[in-house]
Design a protein around this nucleic acid. Sequence first.
DNA 1: CGTGGGGTTGACTCAAGTCAATTTGGGTGG
DNA 2: CCACCCAAATTGACTTGAGTCAACCCCACG
Lengths: 208, 208
Amino acid sequence: MRLLDALTSLKRAFRRGDYLYRSGEPFRSLFAIRTGFFKTQVLHEDGREQVTGFQMPGEIIGLDAISSDAYTCDAVALEDSEICEIPFDRLEALSRELPTLQRHLHKIMSREIVRDHGIMMLLGSMRAEERLAVFLLNLSQRLSARGYSPNAFHLRMTRQEIGSYLGLKLETVSRTLSQFQELGLLSVKVREVEIMDMLRLRSFVGAA
Amino acid sequence: MRLLDALTSLKRAFRRGDYLYRSGEPFRSLFAIRTGFFKTQVLHEDGREQVTGFQMPGEIIGLDAISSDAYTCDAVALEDSEICEIPFDRLEALSRELPTLQRHLHKIMSREIVRDHGIMMLLGSMRAEERLAVFLLNLSQRLSARGYSPNAFHLRMTRQEIGSYLGLKLETVSRTLSQFQELGLLSVKVREVEIMDMLRLRSFVGAA
DNA sequence: CGTGGGGTTGACTCAAGTCAATTTGGGTGG
DNA sequence: CCACCCAAATTGACTTGAGTCAACCCCACG
């Protein structure tokens, strides 16, 4: 796996607000996030934007670009971040030599597809409170998998961005968070969230 | 490419309503549709279902299963169909030998991700008429790419299934189709659609 | 030739969107 | 270091697009 290290040796730093790539740019590399936080978004010609995901350390972005040799969305740093660039042709070459790596790459791509299906379910058939609950629980779970507290965390994105991701307007996001607070499920102070009653928050999901 | 033929030599036939696979079943193969029409859907524990796609000849299904070695959705034939089974370990082995095949596989997976992002945009920020217009135009385009008329076609799915896919209720799908008909954009007679004014239908998309 | 699933349509409801006023807080320059 | 400014967030009042519920039609199939 020293080969793999060689592959990921290109590191780059980004400031908050920087674009890692923009839609339309030629595809050459995938990126692994080392530290920080990103969002990816697709822009519709009429100006509407859809946030397609929030990525944290250990996650890979750029997979959408393989299909057309150009990035199909924008990736923007939501805080100062560091990424590893992975030249895709080298990754392909190496994965021909290492079946384990090959399988790993396929799983990563497949996982992205499964994740997207989950969001389609969320956007297609959940009410606002459910969407928010799913979103918060997912963040909590991913942060906790990285050694952070599952109960208290800092939101790195605006209400607007959360809304775009969840198919809601920012006012609805704000109201729903306030409502959760009133119910004693959590406390929100702008970007700081503390989940007080994880079980009850979970029970929100899938409840009519 | 004779190797590839060997890979896809397992053919199977399905009757309308048959399951190609079900969520949870162990993953062994991808499937290429030769003839017919399928839908894929994910089921939420509470019974809600989300149709994640409608697939036609030449398209590959089962990519979601790679990530967890089990199918994560159901695939159901919407009409009598014939598929090729592609054992995934053989496909991986072969794609280690054939860089072109490897690249092709990666593009197919990436294309699925891009498609899903498009649907997220649709579900997250389009109104009912736009969703229907996008859906019909997409069907039209794919059918036309397969040599069928882009203007007149048979819907192989129910209003319910269209609604699930588009995040709408069946009544809304029905009403919106009627409305398009009133406007002279198309004629619908239950499952038979004829697009009369493709341009105006297109102009619906992205219009406030 | 009945029967039931799929489709259409209407009347009414309601969740989320819109618009607007106000507060909060982080970042920048004097 | 503080004051100011502006973007982000909150909250309220009102509107609306889509959902719900219900009646009815139609035709395909047994």
